[in-house]
Every structure is written in C-alpha cells, then in structure tokens.
C-alpha cells in the first residue's frame, strides 16, 4: 500500500471501519513508514485530547422540564371549553398522569373520566400531579439526582437549586432509609423530592413552601391507582407523601416524618 492510499484510509483505520484485509495492509505500511506512522500517532493524540476533554454538553435540568411540558402540551387532545379556561399547566399534568397510568393499565378510564367529571379542586389537581411525578420518577430511571442516605449530604445539595431549604431527616433506624433526593416540578414551581425506601417500595416526599391561606387542613386525599397519599403542613411548608406501600406503613412513615419536621413534636 502506498503512502497516498494509507493517508486516504487512515481515518477509516482509526475508526475501525475498514475490513480485515485493508486493516492488515495499513498496519504493515505503518510499521514500515515513518511519515505515515507519525501521522497516525498525531491523530491518536488528537482523538484522545478530544475524548478526554470534557467537551460533552449535558442538557440542563430546566431543558428537561421544558421539553417534557412542551411534548405533553402538544399531545393534548381536544378539550371542552370549560377545561380550556383552566391553567394550561394543570391540564398538562393530566397528560403526564395518563402516561404513568397507562403503564398501570388504568389510563383509559382516567382519560375518559377526567374531562367528564366536574371541575376538580386545587387539592385534587395537586394529588394528580403528585402521583404522576411519583410514577414518572420510577419509570424514567430518574429517581434521584443525589443518591445518599446521609442527610448532611442531601440537605446541602439543594442549596442554590431551590429558594427554600427543605428539612431532611434520615429515618433508617425507624425502618425507612433515605435513598436520596431530586428536584421535581409541582404546581408550577420547583419542589424538593426526598426519596425513602421500605423494603422494595419507594416513598416520594415532596416539600415546598405553603402558599398563603393554604394551611387549612382538609380531608386526606383518597388512595387512587393503588397509591396512597398523605399531606400535611408544618412551619410554613407543605408536605405530600406518596407510595404504593400499604396505608398502615405509609401512615407510620408520615407520623415519623411529621415528628421530625414539626418544631413542637406534637402532631
């Protein structure tokens, strides 16, 4: 093989795109030819410089949210005028709910019933968002952004990511080890999501500052789609806890979490 031919094919050789015969011919030529083997080494050096440099741009978390909401909005079916008047973002969350639910094989029911039912309350809509966020966190392989059972690792991780500092407590000794945390997006705002585990069941604990006038305790949301939900408000923070864990054990978790987060330990 000549130098010209080698130079023409050296990139195919580098990229492992040549057939065996050509590969051998080039290898033989590189052993014999100083110039070409130097060119080959230069290319290897260039490649390793590109590959070892951190030149890969990773998508920011905000883009992930943007794309998801744009996709769900675009996928929105025809809606009745009554629903049209609602905030679009609320409806979007319905769509995501349906995605998660379809895996649980109840989506069709939800899709058909949702527009027919009377207008849900704000709590109802939040509950739906909470469930879809929970399902999504388990489905899209995005349970945690920071994985640690150490509350002193998890709590500082939120610094600079949220405009509030959520209380983080490890409940390993009580049988609910902390798995980690991530950012999520509920009710049009970024929220903290803490992830706990009980055997094979994951518990998402969502935390965000309460809106004014929303502190009033209302009835607990009913379980839906096999998920149990609990909600409470302490020291200006709203907590929602969701899991497929049975109601009794989730209640136990909620009691523990409430005691930890409440300044006056009385429920």
């Amino acid at each position: 093989m000549s130098c010209q031919e080698t130079q023409d094919l050296i990139h195919g050789y580098l990229d492992d795109e040549l057939d065996l015969v050509r590969n051998l011919e080039i290898e033989r030529h590189l052993q014999a030819c100083q110039t070409c083997s130097q060119a080959h080494r230069d290319q290897l050096a260039l490649r390793s410089a590109i590959k070892t440099g951190s030149l890969y741009y990773h998508a920011p978390a905000s883009l992930q949210m943007r794309v998801r909401s744009a996709v769900s909005k675009a996928n929105k079916p025809e809606v009745s005028p009554q629903i049209m008047s609602w905030k679009t973002s609320r409806i979007m969350s319905w769509r995501w709910l349906s995605v998660g639910a379809s895996l649980a094989a109840v989506a069709i029911l939800a899709l058909i019933l949702a527009p027919i039912l009377t207008r849900p309350s704000a709590d109802e809509l939040t509950a739906r968002e909470i469930i879809s966020a929970h399902v999504r966190s388990l489905m899209a392989n995005h349970l945690t952004d920071v994985s640690s059972s150490d509350q002193h690792t998890v709590k500082p991780w939120f610094n600079g990511k949220l405009d509030f500092s959520p209380p983080v407590n490890d409940l390993t000794n009580q049988g609910f080890p902390l798995v980690g945390a991530r950012l999520d997006y509920i009710n049009d705002r970024p929220v903290a999501a803490l992830v706990y585990r009980r055997q094979q069941h994951f518990i998402n604990l969502f935390i965000w500052p309460s809106a004014q006038g929303s502190e009033k305790a209302k009835t607990e949301p009913a379980p839906r789609q096999g998920y149990h939900l609990f909600r409470w408000t302490t020291s200006g923070m709203t907590y929602w806890s969701v899991s497929d864990l049975n109601e009794r054990e989730l209640k136990e978790f909620v009691q523990l979490a409430r005691n930890q987060t409440s300044p006056t330990t009385t429920p």
Binding site: H58, A59, P60, L63, V99, S102, L103, A140, N141
Partner: peptide
C-alpha cells in the same frame, strides 16, 4: 406517547450536545 417517552426522551443529552 409512552413509547415516545421510552424511545426518544432519554436521549435529551445527545440531542442537546
């Protein structure tokens, strides 16, 4: 849509890069 989520959404990094 669920299929879309599984097949396409995970490649956001590649798309952005």
């Amino acid at each position: 849509l669920a299929r879309f989520e599984r097949a396409v959404l995970p490649h956001l990094d590649a798309a952005y890069n």
